[in-house]
Computed example of a mutant assay.
Amino acid sequence: MDLIHAIIMGIVEGLTEFLPVSSTGHLILTAELLNFTGDRAKTFEVVIQLGAVLAVLVLYRNRFLKLLNFNFRKGSGLNALHIALAMLPAGLLGVLLHGVIKEYLFGPKTVLVGLVIGGVLMIIADKAKVPVKAEGLDDITYKQAFLIGCFQILSLWPGFSRSGSTISGGMLTGTSQKASAEFTFIVSVPIMMGASAVDLVGSREFLTLNDLPLFAIGLIAAFVVGMIAVVTFINMMKKIRLSWFAYYRFGLAALFAWIILF
């Protein structure tokens, strides 16, 4: 049964990590339904996130290699400074408030709140129709990168969604919906790797060789499904509005509120 749970959780992680629907929220809610909880389960969730990270690294490998060109002059295109500026706000607060967030915000009820409020933000970003100043990744300015990073602070609350917060922030600062999504994917990699490393160090006592097959299956499932989800999502961003995902979030919150509360 644990292996079945691992596959299910891996699929959920891969499908939702880079969609603006909150992968953390989905994992918490799915774990509650499967009764797959406790310290071992939380460590498992950290491990399978690395599968989603690897999916982005493979798909955007050429873009990541270009980031190694440390040319920070204006008009040089997306570079490492853009990523650093976008990471700074949420990264700093995440380190300072890591214990508080893990203790008080990782629960089904707080996720429901995040799903709803995050959905409202996405609708605002969609309806605002801010004139696009950055059509592609290489058009994003340092100021836009930092402001998008400020919006990413919201994702520290489980249920808000990292991609939902940053895509909304990108659109509100004049970045196209597609470029905002791709920027979100790239920025998420170093943040997720850092956060996963911190969590794994803190959870090392719950890691055992006996759990290696379980964790490996979950990671592989998240990697394969994550690659499919990222490619599909980027194509969807050319055709659908961000608010559609907000309506899904409202429906999901209502469904799980009924399951949890009643």
Rank of each mutant, 00 (worst) to 15 (best):
G75W: 05
E103T: 15
F160K: 06
G99L: 06
G136F: 08
H26R: 09
I148N: 04
A55M: 04
T16I: 02
L112K: 13
G218R: 08
V189G: 04
G159T: 09
L3R: 12
I217T: 15
T175W: 00
F223K: 07
F256G: 03
I191E: 01
F206W: 07
I124H: 05
F160D: 02
F183D: 02
G251L: 13
A125T: 10
F185N: 11
S188L: 01
P213S: 12
A84G: 06
G51H: 05
G169M: 07
P89N: 10
M192H: 02
I117F: 13
I48E: 05
P108H: 03
L115R: 06
L15G: 05
K178E: 10
A55S: 13
L29W: 09
G174I: 05
S23G: 11
D138V: 05
L93N: 04
L105V: 02
R204Q: 02
G170S: 09
V21I: 15
I191L: 14
V116F: 12
V53L: 06
K129I: 00
F215N: 15
D139W: 03
D2H: 14
L219Q: 01
A254F: 10
A6V: 03
L252G: 09
W244I: 12
A80S: 14
L137M: 13
G94P: 10
L212E: 05
L212R: 11
L96R: 08
G164Y: 12
M87C: 14
V130D: 00
L214R: 14
L78I: 11
E182A: 05
V113Q: 00
A41N: 08
L242R: 13
A52M: 03
R63L: 03
H82L: 02
S76G: 13
P158T: 07
Y60S: 02
V132N: 06
T110D: 11
A90T: 01
L85I: 10
A125H: 09
A134F: 04
A86E: 02
V53Q: 08
S180R: 11
A52H: 04
L214V: 10
L121G: 08
I186Y: 08
L172A: 12
L252R: 08
I4S: 13
A41Q: 03
I167D: 06
E32L: 03
Y104G: 01
I148E: 01
L209V: 13
F245H: 03
T184C: 15
K238I: 00
G170R: 11
I228R: 01
L242C: 06
A145H: 11
K42V: 00
T141D: 07
I140S: 01
P190A: 07
A246R: 06
